[in-house]
Design a protein around this nucleic acid. Sequence first.
DNA 1: CAAGTAGTTGGGAATCATTGTCAAATGACC
DNA 2: GGTCATTTGACAATGATTCCCAACTACTTG
Lengths: 132, 132
Amino acid sequence: MVEAPRNTRQRRAVVAILEDLDGFASAQEIHDILKKRGESVGLSTVYRSLQVLADAAEVDALRNDDGEVLYRQCSAGHHHHLVCRSCGRTVEVEGPTVERWADKIAEENGFQDVAHTLEIFGTCNSCASARA
Amino acid sequence: MVEAPRNTRQRRAVVAILEDLDGFASAQEIHDILKKRGESVGLSTVYRSLQVLADAAEVDALRNDDGEVLYRQCSAGHHHHLVCRSCGRTVEVEGPTVERWADKIAEENGFQDVAHTLEIFGTCNSCASARA
DNA sequence: CAAGTAGTTGGGAATCATTGTCAAATGACC
DNA sequence: GGTCATTTGACAATGATTCCCAACTACTTG
Ligand SMILES: [Zn+2]
Ligand SMILES: [Zn+2]
Ligand SMILES: [Zn+2]
Ligand SMILES: [Zn+2]
């Protein structure tokens, strides 16, 4: 029997940040935001909380070009992301055609336990105009 | 004026390995293979060579689930991959529909300088039967 | 409310891929 | 062969993430 996770101040604080943010953010960024808000949480705990949330599919995780893992509270169900490289602003997108295409490709080649990653990166218009 | 890169034993050795391999491999794996073959090359040099090749689009690079960067000598032109998680065996795949879809999504949302990542991971049939 | 217990925290050490450093080695060109 | 800028390689440094473990605390029970 698996014990229920405890309802701790730290976990609540991390979830609260994720609810406020609308884009992807790294564990360290979330840690910094918590520190700024005075609701300090240990860095290890931030990492752990995000892992737990990601395992439970409560948040989505992806890697940026630098290899850092970014987290975001998304809506349920399988989807992909259009992410601003500079500010993290994110649009959730769906592509039923892509899903079918990927599965078909894998099946045709005899692959099992198939999963796929698909992310679109770019510069959002507010970041683009700020840069001009 | 940019100087032409030198033709060194080390660079040739790395390229030779990439030509032999048919799947993705990490810098460290390539370094190990070189060592086994007696054609030893410093680890830093392997990393540097792969970076140069990747910048020149001579090889493709992607990250596995663990965040390691894997390299592979691929055919020219934009394409994606169906990769065996266990042995790295790779099938190059193309999805013109996906390309258009991604660009359209980005444009509709006012994103610029758009790029996308799309990889399919699974277990190839030889690895699947070996596991049974 | 008090005590017991097991999940949780935090901060510092450890890990590990990757990058930086710089003196020594070596292609390219004469 | 001589010159010189590029390249190499051993080692240090970096940086995100994980590990460790003693102290802490959210729940349960009486
Ligand atoms: Zn932006
Ligand atoms: Zn999908
Ligand atoms: Zn395989
Ligand atoms: Zn593509």
